[in-house]
Write a protein that binds this DNA or RNA. Structure first.
Lengths: 194, 194
DNA sequence: CTATACATGTAACAAGTTACATGATTAA
DNA sequence: TTAATCATGTAACTTGTTACATGTATAG
């Protein structure tokens, strides 16, 4: 349901088209709730049926401009106040980290450093985005700035974490007798509880 | 595909059943890649067909114990080294933060504080889990500790972020003339680009 | 004229969640 | 004996991704 409310929320701030919304999801919302146009257009149709949004204009190339209705805004507020937030974190790079013991330490460290670099790049991107937002402007902009701050802090720690993990792997490898190329997988595989 | 490789990875470390795997996903992997038993059992069947795992034993109540095969381990390593990681972050509480300008500031601040408390609770949970893992034990445990550290750091910043955001909302509300109960939504809604 | 950006949609598939469904073993 | 835990599975549905498909307006 999150996408549905996100669309209403954006349209409550400012009337715009599906194309505009898609761009919003590709920039400011990219690090909170990414969505493609193929998901957005059908959802807009459903929101029209629900009466949570309405078409307020049109433009060249079949452009349709939508705005949130009072009902839509009520539904959004109801979602925010009367439903539990899903605080799940699902992040593939962390999953990958669990299994890097199957690689030789040099490769594992390289991968952590690649993660660190990628996170740092995203952080710079978000930082530029944050600079375009004013702290003391409109309520929507103030909220956006608070949300953006989460992304800023998250990517900063992810970057630090990955760099730290790379160093740890290197440090441990240095203490090892540099035996085979890879850790002895079969030894741990023999551990079994039937 | 992540689930598939996660299962092979866990079974490369230690032979176990679908039930055991489900518990692993509910504890150590819960904050990296959550998965339910309804997703795990069918995937195990597919992994058997692929030859990436094999059944190595059985137990009471139809218990089936699986282990990763050499092919499975090769596939896992190939995934880790030859495919791009998906570094997407999708987190509902951040999305919600974007739209809290539609609520009165008191309610918005309360919600941020509830977020902070929930994150802090998860952090304590993860901290207990981390204490059960040794830094210098087996390679799999060392990897798990590195991965867990990401969760630790992420939940710490999320908790700090939410508390900070709550304070910010309060601080801003204090400077406001306490006019109506809610921000003037209609004013910003009038902003429109056709 | 020609490439790029604008603009909207659909279809097929993959992944994930919730609910349904069943039964065996064990500990109190 | 009875509740909890162990243990495996399926079905229906929702959500999200990738690819397909089409056409218009604008800037160089």
């Amino acid at each position: 349901m999150s996408l549905r409310y996100a669309l209403v929320g954006l349209l409550a701030e400012e009337a715009m088209s599906g194309y505009d919304l898609t761009k919003r999801f590709a920039v400011s919302l990219a690090h909170a709730w990414p969505a493609q146009h193929s998901q957005i257009y059908p959802e807009l149709a459903r929101l029209m049926e629900l009466g949570w949004i309405c078409q307020t204009g049109s433009g060249p190339r079949g452009r349709k401009v939508y705005a949130a209705t009072a009902e839509g805004l009520t539904a959004l507020r109801d979602w925010l106040t009367h439903t539990d937030a899903d605080r799940t974190l699902r992040h593939e790079p962390i999953l990958r980290a669990f299994f890097r013991w199957t690689l030789d330490p040099g490769e594992a460290a390289n991968q952590f450093r690649a993660d660190a670099a990628a996170y740092a790049a995203t952080l710079r991107e978000l930082d530029n985005l944050a600079r375009t937002l004013d702290w003391e402007s409109s309520p929507p902009d103030r909220s956006a700035r608070l949300a953006l701050e989460a992304g800023l802090r998250l990517y900063r720690v992810l970057s630090e974490w990955a760099a730290w993990a790379a160093d740890r792997v290197d440090a441990h490898a240095a203490t090892q007798p540099a035996a085979g190329e890879r850790p002895d997988v079969s030894a741990s595989r023999r551990r079994t509880r039937q």
